Simulated scan of single mutants.
Amino acid sequence: MNRLPLVRHGRIDIDGVEVHYRESVPDRADAPVLLLLHGFPTASHQFRRLIDALGADHRLIAPDYPGFGQTTAPDDFTYTFDRLADIVEGFVDRLDLHRFAMYLFDFGAPVGLRLAERRPESITGLVVQNGNAYADGLSEAARSFIALAPEQTGAEGQIRDLLTLEGTRFQYETGAPDPSLIAPESWMLDQHYLDLPGRKEAQVALAFDYKSNVDRYDGWQAWLRKHRPTTLVVWGTGDPFFTEAGARAYLRDLPEAELHLLEAGHFTLETHLDVIAPLIGDFMERLR
């Protein structure tokens, strides 16, 4: 039987935001660190099985952003991707993380790449799983969604349609060759958090701010070319938002990156943990 790690759950106050996080306690005190940055509309619980699979050998740390999961923020918190990155940066400082790799998924890509720009000396490597940083990777549906603006009639309604139980389940199951492999509590738990007071308003604000990420794609690509982080790209090709072209685009700036394309949807970890966990385990050993 594989060793299972201890997994601790904690809370840290960062500028008035009470950040909830989970982390594994590996066997070795000097185990390499992987910061797990979740996507929309989920939270750190999306990584619970990955933490069980790898946490005995590596220190895996997964925070919930403001507006997600069990993290709580003041009523006047401004929901932008810059502010999410501010909170994650403060979290990294409070945990005294000096050198770490990052797992970038969905929203985790713009949050993590902002952090990488701010402190490139800290980043030991990147695991990119359906975390887009290239215009190539935006599907037509994604482009239309990102183009929505607050002053546009019906725009907020289109965003709120995605925040329903049907919209959340759609994100999990679309592109998955066998939806029976997806635990229904995954999308049901996400919906529970989405339905908390103020959460939908937070997600609407972030949706309108998403175009700020596209505006920074050129800068992030330049960062990748300059720093050449050791990178593993794992991508579900059935993702309705971020296409296979977005995965291949990383090789333009990181020609030595390792690329794995899987027949899966957006939430690839839900259906392909048995493939992804060994890839990340080998990747982390190389970083060691």
Rank of each mutant, 00 (worst) to 15 (best):
I51S: 00
V92T: 14
A53N: 03
V19F: 06
R94Q: 15
V25M: 11
H98Q: 14
D57P: 03
L54R: 06
D52Q: 15
G67P: 03
D57G: 09
P63K: 05
G69C: 07
L60Q: 04
R49F: 13
A62P: 05
G67F: 10
L54S: 04
G39K: 07
H20T: 03
D75C: 04
V33P: 01
Y21D: 00
P32F: 12
D93I: 09
D64H: 08
A56E: 02
V92C: 08
D82Q: 13
T78R: 14
L36T: 05
D13K: 07
R59M: 06
D75A: 15
A29D: 13
D57R: 15
L95V: 07
Q70S: 11
T80A: 11
A29N: 05
D96E: 15
L60T: 06
A85H: 04
L84T: 03
A43H: 15
T71Q: 02
T42D: 11
L84S: 01
D27W: 09
D13T: 13
A56W: 12
L54T: 07
E89C: 06
L95R: 14
G39I: 11
T80L: 11
D75M: 09
A62G: 05
V88F: 04
Q70N: 13
D76S: 12
D96I: 05
I87V: 15
S24D: 05
F81L: 10
Q70W: 13
D93R: 15
D82F: 12
A73F: 07
P74V: 11
P74Q: 07
E18Q: 14
T71N: 02
G69E: 02
G16H: 08
Y79F: 15
F81W: 13
L34V: 10
A85P: 01
H38L: 07
P74N: 07
I12Q: 09
T80I: 11
T78A: 15
I14S: 00
H38G: 04
H20P: 01
V33E: 00
I61R: 01
Q70K: 13
H20W: 14
D75W: 05
H98C: 02
E89T: 14
D30S: 13
F47V: 08
P41T: 11
Y21R: 01
Y65T: 06
T71V: 08
D75L: 14
G90F: 12
E89Y: 07
F68V: 03
L50Y: 08
V19K: 00
